[in-house]
Design a binder for these strands. Structure first.
Length: 425
RNA sequence: GCCCCGAUAGUGUAGCGGCCUAUCAUCCGAGUCUGUCGAGCUCGGGACACGGGUUCAAAUCCCGUUCGGGGCGCCA
C-alpha cells in the first residue's frame, strides 16, 4: 500500500511503498540515490550495486522526472533529513522524455513565460504547489465562514444577455441564434436573490473581463468571491469583510505552516482594526504629499502607489463620489456614495457597497449613467415588488492570495492565467 | 490603445561591427569515482526569433513583423 512521502518518517525500520517523480538521481560507482518527490515532500531512495547489479545498471539511464514506485526499508541514515528508503523493488511507471522543457530542480530560474508554457512542470516545484495549497485554504475558510453565518451558496449564470452594467467590456459568445456574453460579475443576480428573500448569499465563481489591460494585477478570467446580505448597510458588510479576511489569515497560519515556510513568508498578522479612510481624506493625504488631485477625480495607479504604498496593511476607502461608482451603489448624500474598496497598500482587493433598493432611485441612476433602464428590466423588475435594503462585496481570490503571500504578479496565483495574449494552456 | 525595453543551445545568460566555426552555468550523452544530498572529476553535444536593408564584413547597425517584459490607460 502506497504511503505519502511525508509519512515515511513514521515507518522507520519497516517496509514502505512510495510513489512519485525522480527529481534527481545521483550515481556513484557502487551506490546510487534517487530523490523521489510526491505532493507531500521528498525523500531519497538508496540502492547498493552489490547484489542488485541489474537494477542498478538499468537505473543509470533513467531520466529525471520519471514516475516510479519504490518499495524498501525505511531507515535512519546519514541523509540530510535523517532517514532514507533502502530500495528493494522499483517499478518505472512512466519514463520522462528528455531534455525537460523546464528543469524542476535546476538552480536556474526560468522566465514566467517559459514557466506558464510548461505549467505542469512549473507546478511540480514545492513553492508553486504551496501557493495553491494556501489558496485552497483561503477559499475553503471563507466558504466555511459564510456557511456558518447562515449564508446560502448560489450559482448564478455565467452566460448573460447583452445588457449589463455598462463600463467593462464583455466577451461575446454565440448563444444559438442570438448573441450573449460571458458574465463580468454576479452582481445583478445576487441582488435579485435579495428580492427573492434568500437574505444572505455567496458565490465563488469565475468572472470574465474583456479589458485589454496588461499589468501584473489584472487577468481576464479570475475567481470572484461574492456576497450579498439583506437589511444591512455598507458599514455592516465592511465588518463582515474584515472578519472574512481575518478568518482567511488565521486559517493559513493554522493549516499552512509548512507552505509558508517553503514560500519564505511569515504568518499573516491581522490583529489590527482595518482603517476606514474616506475617499475625501485619501484625496487630502495625496495633496499633502504634493500630488495635485481634486476631490471627485478617480484615484489613479500612481496616486494609489504613493499614498497606498505607505499603508502596508488592509484598509478601506469609503464614501466614494457617486460619479465614480456604478448605478447600483446607494447614495450617501448629493455627492458621495455608500461604495467602498478594501485595499492592501496600493492594491484593490475588494469593491463593495450598500446598494440602491428603491426602484425609482435605480432607474434614475441608470439614466444618469447613460444606460437604458429598459435593457435592465429583468433586474429592475426585481426591485418593484419588495426589495429589501441590502449590501455586499466581491473579493478577487487571486488578488487576496497575492497579498497574503506577498506575491507581486497575479499570474503566479492563477493556475492557468488568461491575460491579453494567453489562452493556452 | 499609448510609452519604454527586450528576443542568442532544452533552460538561464555573456558578447553589442571583423578577435565569434559565439561565453559561462544548467541540461543532455559517454566515462570515472564505496554514500551522495546544488555530489565531484574528464570528454563530448546543443543556439544568434522571422523578413528585408546598410557594409568589404552583421549575433552586433537600420526598417518591418511576430512574440515577450515593465509602466500607464482602460478596469463592479
Amino acid at each position: 500500500m502506497r504511503i505519502l512521502i511525508r509519512e515515511v518518517k513514521n515507518h522507520l525500520d519497516s517496509e514502505v511503498e512510495i510513489s512519485g517523480w525522480a527529481q534527481n538521481i545521483r550515481i556513484m560507482s557502487s551506490v546510487l540515490f534517487i530523490e523521489l518527490r510526491d505532493v507531500s515532500g521528498t525523500v531519497q531512495g538508496v540502492l547498493l550495486k552489490k547484489g542488485n547489479e541489474e537494477l542498478f545498471d538499468s537505473l543509470k539511464t533513467i531520466p529525471r522526472e520519471t514516475v516510479m514506485s519504490m518499495e524498501g526499508q525505511a531507515v535512519k541514515s546519514q541523509a540530510k533529513i535523517g532517514y532514507e528508503v533502502q530500495i528493494k523493488n522499483l517499478e518505472i511507471l512512466n519514463k520522462s522524455e528528455t531534455p525537460l522543457p523546464l528543469g524542476v530542480v535546476d538552480k536556474i530560474d526560468s522566465d514566467i513565460e517559459t514557466r506558464l508554457e510548461n505549467r505542469y512542470l512549473d507546478l511540480r516545484r514545492p513553492e508553486k504547489l504551496s501557493i495553491f495549497k494556501v489558496q485552497s485554504t483561503i477559499a475553503n475558510s471563507i466558504r466555511d465562514y459564510f456557511v456558518q453565518q447562515g449564508f446560502i451558496e448560489i450559482h448564478s449564470p455565467k452566460i448573460v444577455a447583452a445588457a449589463t452594467e455598462g463600463g467593462t467590456e464583455l466577451f461575446p459568445v454565440k448563444y444559438f441564434e442570438r448573441n450573449a456574453y460571458l458574465s463580468q460579475s454576479p452582481q445583478l443576480y445576487k441582488e435579485i436573490m435579495m428580492s427573492a428573500g434568500f437574505d444572505r448569499v455567496f458565490e465563488v465563481a469565475p468572472a470574465f473581463r474583456a479589458e485589454e489591460h496588461n499589468t501584473p494585477r489584472h487577468i481576464n478570467e479570475f475567481t470572484s468571491i461574492d456576497m450579498e446580505m439583506s437589511f444591512v448597510n455598507d458599514d455592516d458588510v465592511m465588518d463582515v469583510l474584515e472578519n472574512v479576511i481575518k478568518v482567511a489569515g488565521q486559517s493559513i497560519a493554522e493549516s499552512n505552516e509548512r507552505e509558508l515556510e517553503i514560500l519564505g513568508v511569515s504568518k499573516p498578522s491581522l490583529d489590527y482594526k482595518f482603517k476606514r479612510i474616506s475617499y475625501s481624506e485619501f484625496v487630502k493625504m495625496a495633496n499633502q504629499r504634493g500630488i495635485k488631485l481634486k476631490d471627485g477625480e478617480d484615484l489613479s495607479t500612481p496616486v494609489l502607489k504613493t499614498v497606498g504604498g505607505e499603508i502596508n496593511e488592509f484598509y478601506f476607502i469609503t464614501r466614494w463620489p457617486r460619479e465614480l461608482k456604478p448605478f447600483y451603489v446607494q447614495p450617501f448624500d448629493e455627492e458621495y456614495s455608500r461604495g467602498f474598496d478594501l485595499q492592501f497598500g496600493e492594491l484593490e482587493i475588494t469593491s463593495g457597497a450598500q446598494r440602491v433598493h428603491s426602484p425609482e432611485v435605480l432607474v434614475n441612476n441608470l439614466k444618469n449613467k447613460g444606460l437604458n433602464p429598459e435593457s435592465f428590466s429583468f433586474y429592475v423588475n426585481a426591485f418593484r415588488y419588495g426589495m429589501p435594503p441590502h449590501a455586499g462585496w466581491a473579493i478577487g481570490l487571486e488578488r487576496l492570495t497575492m497579498v497574503l503571500l506577498n506575491i507581486s504578479n497575479i499570474r503566479e496565483t492563477t493556475l492557468f492565467p488568461r491575460d491579453r495574449t494567453r489562452v493556452t494552456p
